[in-house]
Simulated scan of single mutants.
Amino acid sequence: MIDWTLLRSFLATVDYGSLSAAATATGTTQPTLSRHIRELESVVGTPLFHRSVRGLEPTEAALALVDDARLMGQAAEALALKAQGKGETLRGTVRITASVVVSNLILPPIVADLRQAEPLIQIELVASDTAQNLLRRDADIALRMFDPTQNALIARKLGDTPLGLYATTDYLNRRGRPQTLTDLLTHDVIGFDRAEDIIKGYAAHGFAVTRNQFPVRTDDQMVCWHLLLAGAGIGFAQDLLAGARPQLERLHLGMRLPALPVWLVMHEEVRSNARIRRVADFLTTALMARLKP
């Protein structure tokens, strides 16, 4: 019999091409992965990887194992999900994933209230703008700002969080208050470095701009937020967050900005787990009270 742990490390190394990248993806250490690969090579009796300029490349023997290993992994994950779904006590760990902004600025007071209400439930919070795979149990509950499409997931839309244009009162007193979208072109707008969402938004309103239009640029949403609060320029922010900051003023320039949907998502196999269901219900109530229906 082959230990599934060894196969999981093997698949991660195949998928990511290096021990360091695989270790980061699986949340383990590079020495542990290396040991797992050596143990698996001992079991199958043949080398599974060779080094190249591109990293670790699987041998023909390794490639012959990949499909069967993936099938075994899917079966193991399905079994674990079903077993997890049978939990009936309000004790243990629940892993939540949400965007970096939501994790930093919206969830902390909610998690604090949850800990008071359910002190036996421990919370792991994964702040990531990359969608975690609930089918692989990367998380128990996900808060997402897009409509989930994966099968075997249950999703509930909790509401919308509109976006607005904001700047600090100090910045506007210093630079003046734009009255039209054309005026916005003469102001310091906090933009994205590589993402093109804001450039496309300008284009939709008839303004062809490049990234050089934005004197301060970053793709990190939390950095955007802190630059906005520091008065570095005009920025885009959720009304839910910016409306609670007295130093920020909302600009009404007629720019059509989308409202971000907020979905709570979990795997259908774990919804019968008492502690996960309790956390999901708590998050639902708290977020719906804050969001627009």
Rank of each mutant, 00 (worst) to 15 (best):
I2Q: 15
T5V: 02
L6M: 05
L11N: 15
T13Y: 00
S20G: 05
A22Q: 08
Q30D: 10
R35T: 09
V44M: 05
V44Y: 04
F49D: 06
E57I: 12
A61S: 09
L63D: 10
A64Y: 02
V66N: 09
V66L: 06
V66H: 08
G73S: 13
L81H: 11
K86F: 10
K86S: 13
V94L: 08
T97F: 00
A98D: 05
S99C: 15
E118R: 10
Q122I: 06
E124N: 13
D129V: 11
R136M: 15
R137E: 04
R137W: 03
D138W: 01
A139H: 09
M145E: 08
N151D: 09
A152E: 12
P162T: 09
G164R: 08
G164H: 07
G176W: 13
P178D: 14
L184P: 12
L185S: 15
R194C: 01
R194Y: 07
A195Q: 12
A195S: 10
A195R: 13
K200H: 06
A208H: 10
V209P: 09
T210A: 15
R211I: 02
Q213V: 02
P215Q: 06
M222E: 00
V223Q: 00
G233I: 02
I234P: 03
F236D: 00
Q238W: 15
D239L: 08
L248S: 12
L257R: 13
P258S: 05
A259D: 08
V262S: 03
V265T: 14
V270D: 00
R278G: 01
V279D: 01
L283D: 01
L283C: 11
T284Q: 11
T285L: 11
A289Y: 06
